[in-house]
Design a protein around this nucleic acid. Structure first.
Lengths: 215, 215
DNA sequence: TGGTCAAGTTAGCAGCGTCAACATCTGGTG
DNA sequence: CACCAGATGTTGACGCTGCTAACTTGACCA
């Protein structure tokens, strides 16, 4: 399997690279988080990997394919983060809020990844089934947590609406925090954590109006 | 003032164009709505206006400046639409909901404009004061309507939070509808209007929990 | 009438994504 | 072991991009 003596790090750079695809993804990932999706250049990624400008075409159909790979990885990381929060909580409203907090924290921690995932650089992922699936998977935890909390009081359709509203709420808040729409002050020293919690608390108040809400 | 006899439409095309700036904005606006922000090329805009590729530099500092002009115009149109809705409603919760409906409808009707306004093509508008101001202005109606509805029950800080939550809700919903995250079915024959109303109704339920909500 | 300056022009640079044609290495088969 | 096929790399080139520099044109004012 390993094609060079000495292991990954010390692979003697000969004509064939050996781990180019992974190296390209890593280089592109660094460029993404440092300079944003619009600054990623296929040629620069090749350069960073120490390879000619057209070598990447052996591993990706083109630039968009590379970006799709990064976006999918981003959604998988978001999903993992959400699942970790699921594992660290018990069913109930607080779990839903914690998932929201975790979601916005992900976006705030990896803003450029998040922007790429949601259509900056590539208009949408309708043409990339893998990305669309990863996106849906990252949305599942919030959906499930909400369904568990609400299903005894609501129809499945109403639960679905609530889940969409939740996603829109955290997604919109993430975007507004990132693009400066709310002013730098809003992100404050805690990264806007207090603001996020307040918004999520209000959101929670809209679920099952009148019922379940501690008076 | 007018520099050619015969009026705007019949300006004889001589060395000096006369209305280049407006023509460039119009051409760029068409390209924007047809192909999206990432497809706008400064040279193509010049070509569409029938002028050399560098002529636009006499009217815009560069491509980003042109895009900023389009974004600002977009925010001004959004503001006008919101103000029209304000004028067509009376104070109260229904006004807030109508503003939200109008907001999402704007985004759905002019998706490419909306994407440009919120950071696709240019990462953010922090460096363009005019755009930032227009953005804030477009946010004012929702903020004001909410303040009028809530100020008797809430502190100004809480009202501010509610306004941010409202903006995040409609913004997030607009984005998810546009980029296909919710699936084409969600936009249905009514452009997702029913979905939007349900989400907004739930949002409204979260305002002033327990109070004001019709049981 | 003449000069000034805004608003056009052409020429050229470096960088981009992509394709075609060619070179090199590697693993599998006779 | 020799050799060949295919995967993986290379160079070269095309047309496009945003942008700068240097030049030309022409409208307006003293």
């Amino acid at each position: 399997m390993t094609r060079k003596a000495g292991g990954v790090g010390t692979a003697t750079r000969s004509y064939h690279h050996g781990y180019l695809k992974a190296a390209l993804i890593a280089a592109a990932g660094e460029m993404l988080e440092r300079d944003g999706p619009e600054a990623i250049s296929f040629r620069a990624v090749a350069r960073a990997a120490g390879v000619s400008q057209t070598a990447p075409y052996n591993h990706f159909r083109g630039k968009e394919d590379l970006l799709a790979t990064l976006a999918e990885a981003g959604f998988r990381e978001l999903e993992a983060s959400q699942l970790a929060t699921m594992g660290a909580t018990v069913p109930g409203l607080e779990r839903v809020i914690r998932l929201g907090l975790d979601y916005v924290r992900f976006a705030s921690t990896r803003p450029q990844s998040y922007r790429l995932m949601f259509g900056v650089g590539v208009s949408d992922w309708r043409g990339h089934q893998d990305v669309a699936e990863a996106k849906n998977a990252s949305f599942r935890p919030i959906k499930d947590a909400l369904a568990e909390y609400l299903s005894s009081d609501m129809t499945p359709e109403a639960v679905e609406i609530a889940a969409i509203a939740a996603w829109a709420q955290v997604h919109g808040l993430s975007m507004l925090l990132m693009d400066g729409s709310l002013g730098a002050a809003r992100r404050g020293h805690d990264g806007g954590e207090a603001l996020v919690r307040q918004v999520l608390t209000q959101f929670a108040a809209g679920l099952v109006p009148g019922a379940k809400w501690p008076t």
